[in-house]
Design a protein around this nucleic acid. Structure first.
Lengths: 140, 140
DNA sequence: TAAAGCACTATCCTAAAAGTAACCGCCTTA
DNA sequence: TAAGGCGGTTACTTTTAGGATAGTGCTTTA
């Protein structure tokens, strides 16, 4: 398990534009590295679905579990810990009669919205491309 | 709405009732499924880096390999096949001396640009968040 | 009193992803 | 003649993700 940051360079923000504008294709590392950093946090099939479920108002363990098709307790438990370690999810325990636990998104998780939006949009279009324009039935 | 966690009991709704009451359930799946469709295509640590490398002008096998840190021939070969199967990459063989092979992106791959942009932007910020605040450079 | 919900954890196991290393034939350059 | 580039393939091993199944201690509900 490595929450690593690939490489040592920190391109100020021009790496990509510079690369595209000049047609200089020597350095694609400036684009690849940050993308890989992002993928390292987001990877696996469960992390984004979990974030989405929580953002939709599902705070409790069983509630999240119920709303993500095919996920198991074990996987959910592990992924929530990962997400907490990455400061994307906060776990709060309330000392009520049956102790209850709530998972909420941190403000930092909100910065992932553009990523989720882009994936949602692309995924929606991709689905149409694959199943044809009349397919509305989820095949999972 | 959340008075029950403070200890005072409120007629407990089952999770399903809560869900139907708020209407969250349906919305949740409607977002999760397309995102998972997208992740199914993009997942793994190599596919997006490969697409980025090709988009930067690296068309030849060895050229792509050289520009993606740590990738091996075996993995590159397999991932290129996957990308071809997903209609994101085109493989062209030129009958020159010696026979040369070029990999290019399809127009469909260009539709992934918003996804790559979002990941690039988030990854860049994420890296700053991890290293940036206290000025220590812990890159390996 | 039994069943069921909650928030998990434990154990075992398989399939896939990924790493390592060697190797292919073909061609060019030194 | 050797070294090295090209576009890969094959075989083997390790690592990881994730599925299946069960069970924990607690509380509430029927």
């Amino acid at each position: 398990m490595r929450a690593d940051i690939a490489g040592e360079r920190v391109p100020a923000l021009t790496a990509k534009e510079k690369c595209m504008e000049t047609g200089d294709h020597k350095d694609c590392l400036g684009v690849i590295m940050p993308v890989r950093d992002a993928l390292d946090v987001i990877n696996g099939k469960w992390k984004l679905p979990i974030i989405i479920a929580i953002s939709r108002g599902h705070k409790r363990f069983r509630d999240i579990e119920r709303n993500i098709p095919k996920i198991t307790s074990k996987v959910l438990s592990k992924e929530l810990k990962d997400l907490e370690a990455h400061k994307l999810v906060k776990r709060s325990v309330f000392d009520s009669q049956p102790v209850s636990v709530e998972y909420t998104l941190t403000p930092y998780a909100a910065t992932l919205n553009p990523v989720i939006d882009a994936l949602f949009t692309w995924g929606t279009e991709h689905r149409k491309t694959i199943f044809g324009s009349s397919g509305s039935n989820g095949a999972h």
